[in-house]
Amino acid sequence: MSLDQLYQQIILDHSKTRHGSGLSETPAPDGAQTGQSHQLNPVCGDEVTLRVAVDDGNVAQVSWDGEGCSISMASASVLSEMAEGMTVDELHETIGAFREVLRSRGKIQADPEILGDAAAFEGVARYAARVKCAMISWVAAEDALNQAS
């Protein structure tokens, strides 16, 4: 299996089995700060609401709800799966690295050591119209994280 095929499979798997989907009704840990952000891409209709709980500088909980294309839903799934357990600083750095790759128009390769499964979205960078699809949940996460910190 080629790297492109593996990346396509990761996106397909996450768009079907959405990790973290459904805004959590479980209360955040005692003392945790929460933030929530709703993002909408009016051009294509992708919509994501993402909630994050931060406890003692660590991302304790991430949940989201949304509707949209397979890229936007898979991206939210990958983000929620990898973000829990990171420090706030690590998640900010990861969001920055993801943004840099997607805005590069294919000139910057994703580093799987930094981005994990999110490296699968590297190919999206070549399609300007799809970058917002992949970024919508990451923008929501950044906003929610800033509210919670």
Results as ranks from 00 to 15, higher is better:
Arg126Tyr: 14
Ala120Gly: 06
Ala83Ile: 12
Gly20Lys: 01
Ile11Val: 06
Gly22Thr: 13
Ile114Cys: 08
Asn58Met: 15
Gly68Leu: 04
Ser15Thr: 08
Arg105Lys: 12
Gly20Arg: 01
Gln36Ile: 14
His19Lys: 11
Asp65Cys: 14
Asp13Met: 07
Pro29Ile: 14
Gln5Cys: 03
Pro27Glu: 15
Ala120Met: 05
Val124Phe: 03
Asn41Tyr: 00
Val43Pro: 03
Arg99Cys: 13
Met73Gln: 15
Asp89Cys: 07
Asp89Ser: 15
Met135Glu: 13
Glu122Thr: 14
Tyr127Cys: 14
Asp65Trp: 02
Gly85Tyr: 00
Gly68His: 03
Glu93Lys: 15
Ala128Arg: 09
His38Asn: 13
Ala118Ser: 02
Ser104Tyr: 01
Leu12Thr: 14
Leu3Gln: 12
Gln8Leu: 06
Glu113Leu: 14
Glu25Asn: 11
Cys69Leu: 07
Met86Arg: 02
Ser149Ile: 07
Ala32Leu: 10
Gln147Thr: 08
Gln109Ala: 15
Val131Glu: 02
Pro27Gln: 10
Leu23Ile: 12
Ala141Cys: 10
Ser37Tyr: 05
Asn58Cys: 07
Asp89Met: 07
Thr34Leu: 07
Met1Tyr: 03
Ala76Asn: 03
Thr94Arg: 07
Val48Ala: 03
Leu91Glu: 09
Ser63Gln: 02
Asp13Tyr: 00
His92Thr: 13
Glu25Gln: 11
Gln147Asp: 12
Leu3Val: 12
Gly66His: 01
Ser75Val: 05
Ala74Cys: 01
Glu47His: 06
Leu79Pro: 01
Ile10Phe: 00
Leu115Arg: 02
Ala148Asn: 04
Ser72Gln: 05
Ser149Glu: 10
Ser37Thr: 15
Asp30Thr: 13
Val139Arg: 14
Ala60Thr: 06
Ile114Tyr: 09
Glu113Lys: 10
Asp13Ser: 08
Gln36Pro: 12
Ser149Val: 14
Met82Ser: 15
Ala76Tyr: 00
Ile10Thr: 01
Gly45Asp: 05
Val124Ile: 08
Gly106Pro: 02
Gln36Cys: 08
Gly31Pro: 07
Trp138Ser: 08
Gly85Gln: 03
Gln5Ser: 14
